[in-house]
Design a protein around this nucleic acid. Structure first.
Lengths: 112, 112
DNA sequence: GATATTCGGAACGGATACGAAACAATTTTG
DNA sequence: CAAAATTGTTTCGTATCCGTTCCGAATATC
């Protein structure tokens, strides 16, 4: 898909402004990066894998997961194969959240 | 422009992940909403106008402008007509910033 | 089996953000 | 011109986030 710079920014503005207006719990850029990666990239996801893939420190990923878990958007599950690891899993609530967020983007793209 | 939910989320993820990877100064959702509104919506822009339009308190807008000014992405200019008001103006640095950000989005859309 | 390595998380200190209330400066209203 | 209203900012207390460093548990290596 090809976008012009104006289209790109209008989409971004439309979605982010609407999300700000709604006063929804705002996730930081890192949290959003973690969340979308968990949902859109193939499993499994580990803290280390996310940290490397996002070029972010492990503690930063841990804290992002703390927040996302607290909101019920992802879930930690100990890896039975290697009990040092934690697998990050999707949740129904997270799917709903992202589906609604996608709606914002779609609307913003329509308006453009 | 019509997007599918998956396209929408892939674009968002691609752009935000790349921006996180680059460790660029991350703006909060509010700051980004203020910045894009100032650049994409017709002037003039005032604190009050932005607060109303974004459904956010005035102090929140003031603080967002503090941050954006500090980064040189916008500039405050006293309104000569009504000296209670402050007009928010664009800067070269802000234009460059948004142009580069648009590039991230465009790349993410291509990759999809 | 003792030592290293790897994993996720905790602890600490600093930076930044927030909402609500109070504020100074200016303009409008009576 | 005095009182009220409007505009943007400051202040205060609180919450969140970040990077760095360190730690305990589990696994791999020798």
């Amino acid at each position: 898909m090809e976008l012009t710079p104006n289209q790109a920014l209008e989409i971004w503005r439309g979605a982010i402004v609407e999300s700000v207006r709604r006063d929804s719990p705002d996730l930081s850029a890192r949290q959003m990066a973690v969340l979308t990666t968990v949902y859109l990239q193939p499993s499994p996801h580990t803290v280390r894998g996310l940290a490397d893939s996002l070029n972010v420190s492990k503690p930063a990923v841990t804290r992002a997961l703390d927040r996302l878990s607290e909101l019920g958007l992802v879930r930690r599950k100990p890896d039975e194969e290697d009990r040092r690891s934690v697998l990050i899993q999707r949740t129904v609530k997270g799917s709903v959240y992202l589906t609604e967020f996608a709606e914002l983007i779609i609307e913003a793209a329509k308006a453009d």
